[in-house]
Simulated assay, not measured.
Amino acid sequence: MSTHPAVVTASVRGALQVIKVPTVAPCTGEVLVRVEWTASTPLDLHQNDGGLLVQHPQVLGGDIAGTVVEVGLGVERLEVGDKVFGFTWREQKEKAHQTLATVPEYLLGIIPPHIPMRAAATLPDNFVTVFHALTTDLHLPLPWPRPATAPKHANSPILLWGGASSVGQYALQILAYYGYRHLLTTASPRHHELLRSLGANAVFDYRAPDVVARILDAAAAGDGGGDGGGGGGEAGVRMPGEGSTVAVLLPVIVRDATEGQAPEYSMDAGGAVAWKAGVEVRGVRTHFYLDNEFFKQKLQSEIMPTLLGQGIVKPNRFRVVEGSTLRERAQGAMDRLRRREASGERFVWRVSE
């Protein structure tokens, strides 16, 4: 095929469109993937409704799950017919919301045979985000293979604000696997049992009037060394004290997108709110994870499929967005994101028919 269908954002807050884009033959080290499933993400919403880092028309999507249909020269690990998944984002030919994507081999892992492809699509972007944020922004070592000894800060309190989010769920599972034992998180009460099963030692209702005091009491039960965590919400801002490190996933959402209101964003995690003196605030930029050469070669190709295959991390819960056409499915997922219809779930949908 010389061209194939792709979902694009064509204007700020406009309806999604499907256009024909060139099919790029794989070069050295690349494979061509028939994209079968994807998961829509908040970044897709930010780009459609806020025009964040967009030049219209722009192909959307970063979570790929599909089948290798062609391999380029020098590809050593993947073969035609392999079922693969990965986080791809850098240029149009890699994007997930198109029926064919041309992707470097190192950005893809083989889906374990017992994992449905649509479930695998919930992992890549936020699995990568967790490894990058914990190591680069919170300075917590996550060596591979995992050592037998406990990490230095195994008993230090780590707060994950919004544990039911996709990032929060993978963070809990990965931290617990590496031996971090004092994991605190917040969520609506209906998610508390799930988050405890994923490794949280204590879960708090973020809407409770005494949530700050309760979390600080729980944190004091640890060894007191180096509070780390993800900030968010007014209470999340009030808690970290001097010597704490806070990692905030960018962009900071100053105002959410709604059906009738445009969103507002900030890329300044430190200046967006009034943090206490002595708090180190880091804005998480997942797209720079390839600066780590080891993660570039191993994170998606080896670490991600291994932890998924061994049951160390479990896919997010998800809802399948149905529709008779590619555009209907993509638009349905976008609309549900905007209306914030899911809590603790991802929206997944079929790309190729």
Rank of each mutant, 00 (worst) to 15 (best):
S40M: 14
G163F: 04
D44H: 07
W275F: 06
G222W: 00
K83W: 09
S188K: 12
P116Y: 01
V75W: 08
Q98Y: 04
K20R: 14
E264T: 13
L299W: 02
V84D: 12
A65W: 07
N155Q: 13
L175A: 06
E322V: 02
T186P: 10
E234D: 12
L337P: 05
R285L: 15
S352P: 00
V252W: 12
R238N: 12
Y265I: 05
E341T: 08
G283R: 11
V281K: 11
D63V: 10
S301R: 15
G241T: 10
T99G: 00
L183S: 05
F87H: 11
T135P: 10
F127I: 09
L290V: 12
Y265D: 01
E293H: 14
R13P: 07
R340Q: 10
T185K: 13
A235W: 04
G199L: 11
V203R: 13
W349L: 02
G233P: 11
G232E: 01
E302W: 06
P57E: 14
Q173R: 05
G271V: 09
V35D: 00
V130T: 09
S40G: 11
D217L: 13
H139M: 13
Y206Q: 06
I215A: 04
T136Y: 15
G222V: 06
L60Q: 07
L326S: 02
P315L: 02
A269G: 08
K20V: 07
D49I: 07
K298A: 10
F131E: 08
G228I: 06
D205H: 07
A333F: 04
R196H: 15
S11G: 12
E105P: 05
F131C: 12
E234S: 15
R34F: 07
L250W: 01
H139F: 15
M334Y: 06
A200D: 12
A150R: 15
D268H: 09
I303S: 01
F347W: 01
P22G: 08
L250V: 02
N155R: 13
A15R: 10
G29N: 09
E30F: 09
D49L: 11
L123G: 08
C27K: 14
R118Y: 14
L249G: 04
V18S: 00
A247Y: 10
I115L: 07
H191K: 14
R339T: 09
G323N: 08
P124N: 06
R34A: 13
L290N: 09
M334W: 11
G283K: 12
R146P: 05
A272M: 05
A25H: 06
P42T: 03
L78Q: 10
F204H: 07
L290T: 15
A6C: 10
A121N: 03
G224I: 00
I115P: 02
D217N: 13
L107P: 05
T41C: 08
S188A: 14
G278F: 12
G231M: 03
G344F: 02
L53Q: 14
V21W: 04
E30Y: 11
D49G: 09
P189C: 06
S2I: 11
P22L: 06
A148K: 13
R90T: 12
L53K: 15
R118E: 15
L250S: 01
A171W: 02
F204M: 10
P145W: 07
S188Q: 11
G232Y: 00
Q331M: 05
F318H: 12
G309H: 01
G163D: 05
P112Y: 01
V84K: 14
F85P: 06
R214Q: 15
